[in-house]
């Protein structure tokens, strides 16, 4: 099969787990025990070296500087032998926040959007901001109650992510008159381990629908069903502290994904293989 490099658009705001997933993904790919593995060692893993080092000490990776954007080329192969090269980036997530807040897509990002054949979107539900709406704030509420003045306006997560995907679709010249097939979309609900679930068997898309109903409907209405998938992701398996290293922590043994059907797997390559298979 082809070795043409596929470029995925990895989209995530700050502290949504892009670096942790990149570091853990590299480890899993090297183990060659998952659905995807590396055919040979990547030429350079400089962008993940420090992350690998601190994770092996049981500490979280550093904040990635705002303006940085680096990538590594993974020479991959599927279990069934198909090979593909993948360009995997790491960057400061503030670039994504600024993209929506400033409604401005820098030239470099325009190029990345155009070249991408699949989108991997990180959402950390516990960091989302939501405001009361007609559903969560009944009309019977005292109408005389004075609303607190918003001094530091922040987008609600529903509006932010919907706007973000609309900007990216526009940049890729993809309309929504018919459902979107290209680019394929995989949504990762990151830091799944910090979410307090009422029902442990909750499927990722069900959780997305409960917590971000507007955004979930946007996805459901605009993408071809087979070209979108929602996974839960816990790259490190548990929260790590920058102040208290966990010396017993073994990165290779930690981390899991929650598959769209609600089952768990330690194969962190599954969301990526799903996206690649959709995109090629």
């Amino acid at each position: 099969m082809t070795n043409t490099a596929k470029t995925l658009l990895v989209v995530g705001r700050q502290e949504t787990g892009k670096t942790h997933y990149g570091v853990q993904l590299l480890g899993r790919l090297r183990q060659r025990s998952g659905k995807l593995s590396v055919r040979e060692n990547p030429e350079s893993i400089a962008i993940f070296e420090e992350g690998l080092r601190v994770l092996s000490q049981g500490m979280p990776a550093d904040h990635t500087p705002t303006t940085s954007y680096d990538s590594v080329r993974f020479p991959l192969q599927f279990q069934h032998g198909q090979t593909i090269d993948l360009v995997w980036p790491d960057y400061g997530g503030e670039q994504i926040s600024n993209l929506v807040e400033q409604r401005r897509l820098p030239t470099a990002w325009q190029q990345r959007v155009l070249e991408s054949s699949g989108w991997l979107l990180f959402i950390r539900l516990e960091h989302n901001i939501e405001y009361p709406d007609a559903q969560s704030r009944p009309a019977t509420l005292d109408s005389q109650q004075v609303e607190p003045q918003i001094t530091n306006f922040q987008w609600s997560a529903n509006a932010f992510y919907t706007e973000l995907l609309q900007i990216l679709l526009y940049a890729k010249s993809t309309g929504t008159l018919s459902r979107v097939k290209n680019p394929s979309l995989v949504i990762l609900l990151s830091c799944w381990d910090e979410i307090k679930l009422e029902n442990e068997s909750t499927k990722p898309f069900e959780l997305l629908s409960q917590r971000m109903p507007l955004f979930a409907e946007f996805i459901k209405s605009n993408w071809v069903q087979h070209n979108v998938a929602v996974f839960g992701l816990s790259s490190t398996g548990k929260a790590l502290s920058k102040k208290t290293p966990d010396y017993d922590y073994i990165p290779e043994d930690e981390g899991y994904v929650v598959l769209p059907d609600g089952s768990k797997s330690s194969d962190l390559t599954l969301p990526l293989s799903e996206l690649i298979e959709q995109a090629i």
């Binding site: 500087p65 940085s68 680096d70």
Partner: peptide
């Protein structure tokens, strides 16, 4: 001012 640079340069800083 897109040139405004206020974070660390690059990502090669040993922690």
């Amino acid at each position: 001012m897109p040139q405004l640079a206020t974070d660390l340069p690059g990502s090669s800083i040993p922690p």
